[in-house]
């Protein structure tokens, strides 16, 4: 962990409480956490441990019940929905387990989508250039005009990553990005994520797989809405090298 880097995320005594059928349930119970710029943070934990709820709050998709969340030194809790939307648009990129690409649209249109929410900022030619650059980063520039249903799972997730990085975000939030993929494709995706991290993006990765968390520079483990472990991953693995070690046998099923 590079402790000299700037603190980009700071969470103070964060609580998230849900009311369901007359009972109150706390998904997060007083979380305190800081993330430095350039980290590849893996949030781990069993189902129901609060890791996804936590990531949603960090991604400004949800609000904490009490506590403070400072992004880039600015408190996000008093912001209204529109202001939060603009924070997401300008600074965040999201990668979801089920890709969440728009159906019946091309890879190009999906990657272009975030740029459309910038009003008149990007013209048609600028958008085209940016989309092709992003698709190139994930190795899919020749699939730009393919409809999303014509792509494999791994390719769809790579389109989702291209969409997440198109606005040059400060933080990429990835919620179980490899959850629907086989091992080899998972390692492909993690190689791309590590590559983005090395180029300076901060990555917050939610996963329950140790294999995947091994590629992170820091592991935070959640249990019952509390952080039970927070340590740098000294044995951080390289996804590209790990993929090379996989037996050839898996090759034919790689493209799921």
């Amino acid at each position: 962990m590079n402790t000299t880097a700037k603190v980009i995320i700071e969470v103070k005594d964060l609580w998230k409480t849900f009311q369901t059928g007359g009972t109150t349930f706390s998904a997060l119970r007083g979380i305190n956490l800081s993330v430095h710029a350039g980290e590849l943070l893996a949030i781990m934990g069993a189902s129901g441990s609060g890791k996804s709820t936590f990531m949603n709050i960090l991604g400004c998709l949800d609000r904490p019940t009490t506590g403070q969340y400072l992004f880039n030194g600015v408190d996000t809790t008093p912001k209204n929905n529109t202001e939060l939307a603009l924070v997401r648009r300008d600074h965040f990129g999201f990668v979801f387990q089920s890709y969440n690409l728009l159906p019946r649209t091309t890879a190009f249109e999906n990657v272009e989508l975030p740029l459309l929410y910038f009003g008149f900022k990007y013209g048609i030619s600028a958008r085209k250039e940016m989309v092709m650059a992003a698709l190139k980063q994930v190795g899919l520039e020749e699939k730009a005009l393919n409809k999303t249903n014509e792509l494999s799972g791994g390719q769809q997730q790579r389109v989702a990553i291209a969409r997440a990085i198109i606005n040059n975000p400060k933080i990429i939030f990835a919620d179980e990005p490899t959850g629907n993929l086989d091992t080899r494709t998972s390692f492909d995706i993690m190689a791309i994520v590590q590559g983005l991290n090395q180029k300076g993006a901060t990555v917050v990765l939610v996963t329950h797989e140790n294999d995947i968390a091994d590629f992170a520079s820091r592991k935070v483990i959640f249990s019952d809405g509390k952080v039970i472990s927070d340590s740098p991953n000294v044995h951080c693995k390289n996804a590209e090298e790990e993929r090379a070690k996989l037996p050839e046998l898996l090759e034919p099923t790689a493209a799921k």
Partner: peptide, 16 residues
């Protein structure tokens, strides 16, 4: 609904 959720996540405002 999911598409709308995706759009909101990537920065669409309610107004959009």
């Amino acid at each position: 609904t999911r598409e709308i959720g995706t759009r909101l996540a990537i920065g669409a405002t309610s107004f959009d």
